[in-house]
């Protein structure tokens, strides 16, 4: 199997879907001639032509809206947000239009909005956000956030084939840092299914995106101290895999909810609620969140470092919880 970066895996998935299904096209800012700000769509214009690799004005509402219109007409558009921070400019289209169409009058809305999110690259407040929860709180959307190259390819394919609007959160920190064996044939990773990245018995760390790697690192370190963490990679945030979350909770009885997103109203809060509702009697300690604080993402390296959850913070939380 070829060794692909996370970014290359996304490109390969997109590319294969473009080849497989002529109704798939990509649309966004600087994605054609330039190949995208991060080069996810590099080479596609030459391969698939202007009709299917569409450079647009800086108009997130128009881009998303146009994708919705195309989806209603039977196409499978894939929108690139140059940065997920800018998705706010297309917010009305996503939450009021795309998300509700099927519920309101029944049409399929097969479209994907994908783009880089997350911090750790000194991007400052507008090139670093993890704003997935805006959409997790919107019924009708699906939200996925792969952590591995394998999942990135499998999930982009699932997202494209899905008949609902899917917001696909890529993590820019992982783009070129993660390299994995990725099958070059067709496969999908189902939306809504989490995966246990590392089994453990003492504490379940439920996370997603780049924080999966942080959790795995913490788990390796803590194993030396005799503490075994189970790392659950949600992969999908809406719908999320409640079954796996609860199973891991019941197995470990202690839970850390880890995310790069800010604290209040984050995925951790939602998971904590469902765990408290459905696995209360499996709990042997408080449900603990390790998250970014409730601030914008700061720029200066020490500020950003302070802001972001990291291995050390996870380990400290795990030790405290283990002692509880």
């Amino acid at each position: 199997m070829p060794l692909l970066t996370y970014l290359e895996a996304i490109r390969q998935g997109l590319w294969e879907e473009m080849e497989r299904d002529p109704s798939v096209f990509v649309i966004g800012e600087d994605i054609g001639v330039y190949g995208g700000a991060f080069k996810v769509t590099a080479g596609m214009l030459e391969e698939f032509g202007e009709d299917r690799v569409i450079d647009t004005p800086i108009s997130e509402s128009a881009i998303v809206g146009a994708a919705i219109g195309a989806a209603l007409m039977g196409m499978r558009p894939v929108v690139e947000m140059q940065f997920m921070d800018f998705i706010a400019c297309g917010f009305d289209q996503i939450v009021n239009m795309a998300a509700k169409l099927h519920y309101r009058w029944g049409p399929a809305v097969p479209m994907v909005i994908r783009g880089p999110s997350g911090a750790g690259v000194h991007g400052g407040p507008y090139h670093s956000q993890s704003n997935e929860m805006w959409f997790v709180h919107t019924p009708g959307l699906k939200v996925v956030a792969p952590a591995s190259a394998y999942d990135a390819k499998g999930l982009i394919k699932s997202a494209i084939r899905d008949n609902n609007p899917v917001i696909f959160y890529e993590h820019k920190f992982l783009y070129r840092r993660i390299k994995e064996d990725v099958p070059d044939q067709d496969y999908v990773v189902p939306i809504g299914k989490a995966v246990v990245r590392r089994p453990g018995t003492d504490i379940s760390v439920i996370t997603y995106g780049a924080m999966v790697w942080t959790a795995l690192e913490a788990a390796s370190e803590l194993e030396k101290e005799g503490l075994t963490l189970e790392v659950v990679d949600l992969r999908s945030l809406l719908p999320y895999d409640e079954e796996t979350v609860l199973a891991s909770t019941r197995k470990c009885s202690k839970v850390i909810l880890l995310h790069e997103d800010t604290r209040t109203g984050g995925m951790g809060g939602e998971l904590a609620a469902v765990i408290a509702e459905k696995a209360f009697e499996a709990l042997d300690g408080p449900i603990v969140r390790v998250t970014a604080p409730d601030t914008p993402v700061p720029f200066a390296p020490p500020l950003e470092e302070y802001f972001l959850p990291n291995t050390q913070k996870v380990m400290e939380a795990a030790r405290r919880l283990a002692a509880y």
């Binding site: 108009s59 007409m73 009021n96």
Partner: peptide
Amino acid sequence: GNVDLGIFPIISPLGATLPVACGAAMV
């Protein structure tokens, strides 16, 4: 609305249909 009839309704923030119409026109 009805896809087969080619009728796509508004949402209450009215102008939002204009970009969607552009997408349909693209197709």
